[in-house]
Design a protein around this nucleic acid. Sequence first.
DNA 1: CGTAAGGTTGAATTTGCTCAATCTCGGTGG
DNA 2: CCACCGAGATTGAGCAAATTCAACCTTACG
Lengths: 233, 233
Amino acid sequence: MSTRGMVGSLARFAGQVAHPILRIVVRERALGRYQNLIEPGEAPRMAHVLLSGFTGRHRTLRNGQRQITALLVPGDLCDLEIVLRGWADCGITTLSPCVFGEIPLECVADPLQQEPELARTLLRYLLHRQAIDSERVLSLGQRSALQRLAHLFCELRERLHAIGLADEEGYNLPLTQFELAELTGMSSVHMNRTLQELRGQNLIAWRKGLLSLLDRPALEQLAEFDPTYLRLP
Amino acid sequence: MSTRGMVGSLARFAGQVAHPILRIVVRERALGRYQNLIEPGEAPRMAHVLLSGFTGRHRTLRNGQRQITALLVPGDLCDLEIVLRGWADCGITTLSPCVFGEIPLECVADPLQQEPELARTLLRYLLHRQAIDSERVLSLGQRSALQRLAHLFCELRERLHAIGLADEEGYNLPLTQFELAELTGMSSVHMNRTLQELRGQNLIAWRKGLLSLLDRPALEQLAEFDPTYLRLP
DNA sequence: CGTAAGGTTGAATTTGCTCAATCTCGGTGG
DNA sequence: CCACCGAGATTGAGCAAATTCAACCTTACG
């Protein structure tokens, strides 16, 4: 496919956010519709800036339900977080014929990662939060209320465990049902019933602010929880 | 409130992600439950690391529905994105009594922002994506299907307009209804009916891949769309 | 004991999903 | 030129998930 027409696309970005990015494009690559730029779990070999077309980042649940977690438009860096993280927490697929600009990994990873310790820590924290956000988009978009709540409990256990505030049994959770509802995008009445369902299945107990995960494997299975996303490079 | 107990909390973070952060804490600050650390729209005066308790970032729609977009646990930087951006796109409120470590703005903003142009561009891009993700969490959590779709159309117009791919009337949108459904967390059948509703209200037209926003003010009003979040510092 | 916050319940309603059939329309081969 | 084909869009009907509203219960605490 000709890349000549793309010079016009490139010119359009002058003065835009992506501008300095375009200087480090070493090659163009055209893909037809529904082609994968990156498969989930893959280690990135190049970074990519979208030059034309529409592309989506997506995650898929066991039942095949797919959530497009981000719609990428020309000028967008498709895989910045993936490159910084070193592995793909999502798939990236063209939704129309697309042209990408390929950028060597070092160009993207180096300027942000060969920094003083504090800056690297801050950057890692940004990536950590992004991973959580993207998981939450998947939850809110595709998981049922029961799964969303189970997933929240699993995620919290991992995060609290990492700082010594949770053990295998559970952790202290001083929130109201109303606040859990605000977290998981449901009404407080439905949160109440969803909690009862988890209790009824003997997956959790929650008394006086102490949440017990009675059967963590089953809970994680229900939530399709995979703690990998929380791990930092 | 005594902060003596917090020394124990601090020690717990040794070896954790947040560790280098703790060295730059200049002061501790205790807040009771349901106190605002930051109000939406505010310019940050300090950065904060949560030392104990649970805190939430949240956004609220006109009808009062609140989405907690992030649950912060000890060790979390509460407002890194806010500090880097220079203004608060969300509120931050304690959900239990909390202790925060205060960090001078410069400690957080400098190491990441006084970088070569490319690094700053990449960082700005991370913030841009974070803003979009957080808006999507609000959408999926609290907006109706009609609002979610309207919001997506508004957001896309802004993003495409910025790169010269949209004008006042509309833009080219080569996606299927199925893919729009995957973006907004609904079934394709419901997407079809939601599109019909928007068409019926004369808010949009969509023929041959060309999406026309017939009444953008009304569409933005319906979606509670405020393009501010897309603007970069 | 009284009160207030938070939790629980039931019933009616709305929203959205699933399934399955049908329609539209641009391309393609004859 | 035209019938056919397939992707995508549309429709209807029945069902499931979740909301709303309103009442009521429980518990901690002054």
